Amino acid sequence: MVRAFVFLFLAHLALVIAAVADCLGGEHAPRKLSRAWWVLIIVIVPVVGGILWFSVGRARPPRPQPGSGRPGSSGGPRSPRGPVAPDDDPDFLRDIDRRLRDEPKED
């Protein structure tokens, strides 16, 4: 029984901390109320306040408009503009190959 209470208390604490951190750390303004009001609601009414923050108050990031992509794009999946990782970069691979050829062999 004590373990259940400890678990519920820790879950409650995690929800409150996550909601307050998300509220104070967001880059977009929250919906409906100011950040101060949301923090007050989350702290005073812990479980319900956290659930309300994540369902109602949290700002949604703006969606890109359908026609705002690159000119001539079909709206399908975008290919990366450049190499994604060093091992995909042809210049990087050429440089490694050159270094390996130029190193003196130790035998």
Rank of each mutant, 00 (worst) to 15 (best):
R81H: 10
F54Q: 07
L100F: 13
R99H: 10
R98L: 13
G72S: 08
G26D: 07
A14K: 11
G50T: 00
A36Y: 11
I41N: 14
L100M: 15
R3T: 02
P104I: 04
R70W: 15
W53M: 02
E103V: 05
D95C: 05
L8H: 14
R81P: 09
L100H: 13
G57W: 00
L13F: 05
I51D: 05
H28D: 06
P66K: 08
L13G: 06
K32W: 06
F54S: 07
D91H: 04
A59C: 10
V16M: 06
A29W: 15
S55T: 09
R70M: 14
A85Q: 14
W38Y: 00
R94H: 12
P80C: 07
F7C: 08
L10E: 14
H28V: 07
H12P: 01
A11P: 11
Q65P: 05
D89G: 07
R99S: 01
P71T: 02
A18I: 14
V39Q: 03
C23W: 00
V56R: 08
D87S: 05
G72K: 02
V39M: 02
P86I: 11
L93Q: 15
G82A: 11
A14G: 14
S68L: 13
K32D: 03
P46M: 02
L13V: 06
P71S: 13
V43K: 01
D91Y: 05
L24Q: 08
H28A: 06
L15W: 00
P90D: 06
A29R: 15
E106F: 10
R94A: 15
A29I: 11
P66W: 02
R63W: 04
V39F: 02
D95I: 01
V43C: 07
P83N: 08
V47C: 09
R3H: 10
G57Q: 01
I41Y: 09
D91Q: 12
G69D: 13
P86C: 04
G82P: 06
A85R: 15
S74P: 10
R60S: 12
Q65A: 04
D97H: 08
G57E: 00
F9Q: 11
